[in-house]
Design a protein around this nucleic acid. Structure first.
Lengths: 184, 184
DNA sequence: TCCTTCATGTAACGAGTTACATGATTTG
DNA sequence: CAAATCATGTAACTCGTTACATGAAGGA
């Protein structure tokens, strides 16, 4: 039940069309709630049906033409209600950890290469977050909204740092299979 | 495409019935790949159909009676092939971070209480992992399989530590609402 | 017998993914 | 006009969740 609320949040920050939302999900919002355009159009339809958003009057309902949405009072109310909900943290569900556990049973030739690849990807993602932080959250800006958004970004940064640390330690602890053929 | 491989891994570690698997998923395996008995039975059926596992001969195919499965060579091969696959890390998708971002837009009365609640849950989970670590990975045990399984558990421990650190910093950075309802 | 627990399932639905379809606008 | 790109959608499928159904075994 999170995607519609991610969309409402995005539309409150700035009224947008489906494709614009998709692009914003690829950038800032998708860093903690990713989505595809198919899902977004589907949800926009439902939200409009439910009277929580509406297409701006300037937009004709013709296929292939841009259609901008804005949030209606009912949508804002629904988002407020959702923010107040309690929700337990989800259990971890990570394919890489699962691969590792499986590797303990059936063997893991090449797993170290995959760990190195992930390490590199997380380093890149971290660099991207840090660039965003430097651009969007200079020390002087300190409104309440900025502080909350900065905390969210910090979550992403800390999470990448967790992965980098764990992967580094993991690579120290398992034998390499690339150039030194000591494991079988 | 991970659940069948989680099941194959679990069955290689120890042949089990559906309910036994469910309980093992609630304990060790579910710490990085959670599942319900409905999903497990569904997958067991598919894996049996595919010739990757089979019911032990001693088990009759009667409804309501225990049915133990073991992995066939084809299943082990499929698992080995899956372990060798590359898979990019998934994008973050976390309702709490999303709530925080939404709170930056529509306001956040009571969000600090929810953060405190999550902090407590993560502390409990961390304590549980540390207990498992102390029980299952004493310093003297050091086989290759143990090392990999220990790394997986370390992933869980480090992840809980990430959340505890982030939530603590977040609570320092946002104003408290409500008098002090944290008794309980 | 009735109740509980163990054990194996079915059914229906929602969320997410992948592939494809259709129309409008720009530009060569 | 043709092709590329912008933009909005449909369809089909898998995975995960929730609620419910069915049967067996053991004890009050």
């Amino acid at each position: 039940m999170s995607l519609p609320h991610a969309i409402l949040t995005a539309l409150l920050e700035k009224p947008s069309s489906g494709l614009e939302l998709t692009r914003r999900f690829d950038r800032s919002i998708g860093y903690f709630w990713s989505s595809t355009h198919q899902q977004i159009y589907r949800e926009l339809g439902k939200l409009e049906q439910a009277g929580q958003i509406r297409a701006l009057p300037s937009a004709q309902p013709a296929r292939g033409q841009k259609k901008e949405y804005e949030v209606l009072p009912a949508g804002r109310a629904a988002l407020s209600a959702w923010v107040a909900l309690r929700e337990d943290p989800k259990q971890i569900r990570d394919p890489l950890l699962l691969r590792m556990r499986a590797a303990a049973v059936v063997g893991a030739p090449g797993l170290d290469a995959e760990l190195r690849r992930h390490l590199e990807l997380h380093r890149k993602q971290l660099a991207e977050y840090l660039a965003i932080e430097g651009r969007d959250f200079p020390p002087e800006r300190n409104s309440e909204e900025d502080r909350l958004r900065h905390l969210v970004l910090r979550g992403g940064i800390d999470l990448e740092n967790f992965w980098i640390g764990w992967l580094t330690r993991a690579l120290d602890g398992i034998p390499a299979t690339g150039s030194s053929p000591s494991a079988g």
